[in-house]
Design a protein around this nucleic acid. Sequence first.
RNA 1: GUCCCCAUCGUCCAGAGGCCUAGGACGCCGGCCUUUCACGCCGGUAACGAGGGUUCGAAUCCCUCUGGGGACGCCA
Length: 496
Amino acid sequence: MKIPRVRFAPSPTGYLHVGGARTALFNWLFARRHGGVFILRIEDTDVERSSAEMVDGILDGMRWLGLTWDEGPLIGGPHAPYFQSERNDRYTAMANRLVAQEHAYYCYCSPADLKTRREAAEAAGGAFTYDRTCTKLTPSEIAERESRKEPRAIRFLVPAGAIRFNDLVHGPIEFDAANIEDFVILRSDGQPTYHLSVVSDDVEMGMTHVVRGDDHISNTPKQVLLYQAVGAPVPDFAHVPLILGPDKKRLSKRHGATSVMEYARLGVLPEAMVNFLALLGWSPGSGDRELFSQQELAEAFDLSGISGGNAVFNPDKLEWFNQQHLMRLAPEELITRLQPLLEEAGLWSSTLTTERRAWFFTVLELLKPRAKRLSDFVTLGRFLFDDALEFDEAAVDKHLRTGDAAQHLAALDAQLQTVDTFDPASLEVVLRAVAESRGVKAGTLIHAVRVAVTGKAVSPGIFEVLSLLGRTRARARIIHAISLATDAHGGQTTGR
RNA sequence: GUCCCCAUCGUCCAGAGGCCUAGGACGCCGGCCUUUCACGCCGGUAACGAGGGUUCGAAUCCCUCUGGGGACGCCA
């Protein structure tokens, strides 16, 4: 196989959504797998709807996912520029060449008129196809209109016959040109349309494969025609099925989060998103493995593993992948990812990464199996980072303001004051001894202590928690809880 | 309406004629572990859309139907 050159060519009319992200990922994986080149090209020929912010948003999404491009915005490359809005002269040149070779012609029909006719046809239940009015113009009529500078578009003259191309995921696909109208390639304002700019760029940039969404299948015959008209080799196509919402409709905003950066904000790891997206519509074939790093995916990826049918986006599975990747993240790395979140929550201090490093690592290990998202470390670990506890009233009523909880805690506190080492094992011995001496089940005391030191009914193992808190903080909380327990009417239960 | 794509558990995939009394994962339901919640472990639930062919033999090949999706713009 020749060295593949592939591209992801988003239109900056919105943020990078999961569908686009997966297409980008497949292109990236394909390039990396075969030692090819991955190009990022911005298709901003729709001036009305494109914006610089959207370009930045897409670049952010690409970077977050780790989809580095070899040629494209910011870094340039041998085929610069990589913004279609800056390649206009090439498109006009190609359009003019096509007119000169009679592969295309001027069309003076007004868009407004075309629109009404199209709507009328639709109302009548059919589809409107351009009737080639302007192909009937004589050379002198054209010359006259041109001299008057009448606005006109350029249409491609679709030749009759079958148009065939081989799709790497769908196999051979054939269209009858009779069903394809003479499409506009250059708008009356001189701007190229999608078909023209895509083919022009893909030819000039030497694309060998076009990996894109399924929704482009019906565009492909038009583009094949364009390749043939300019005498360029037709690349191999691979049309990737779409991502659907739970209702089997094309995934859109009304299904919830669709922007990849939205998932980033929700505490999803890019490695989880990549893993999830890669396996949505693609499979490495035999083998039951599902957990892959980006590198491993790049080694296993193959276009032939892409399935032909659309796939439903399953948030539950994404969350599972996230949890799995979270658990596999090295402590150092986890800290880096967590820092912004902890800072935002006002829970970060530089001591976390210096003298209390070991302490922090242990905390993270304890929280890991319980966290499904990055943000869970903040909520789950808050009681360890911050002494201002928020008490769960129901838990307080159930475990603290009940029986002799206060006395039990007081007895425990007395022992905690004197216990030699504050490690989990010693603490367990102490607590069980106190429970026995007071004639209660260990569980009873444990539950009371948990609420006392965490404010909640659920937490990681209580002995680890106590140990991590340390003697001073643990005892202070228990003492406060005792007063809480004696206060029959609840009253102020927040803070310390 | 026309054209195109697709069709295995609720969902994502495996399966490229006999290995399939259809496998894995998520979810769900049990159980174990346990101080709670998770993690982990064990087990269970659940599918080849229908009908015709081809073949000794079909989830796998062909046809029809049905169903779902996409495209029909001077949007990309």
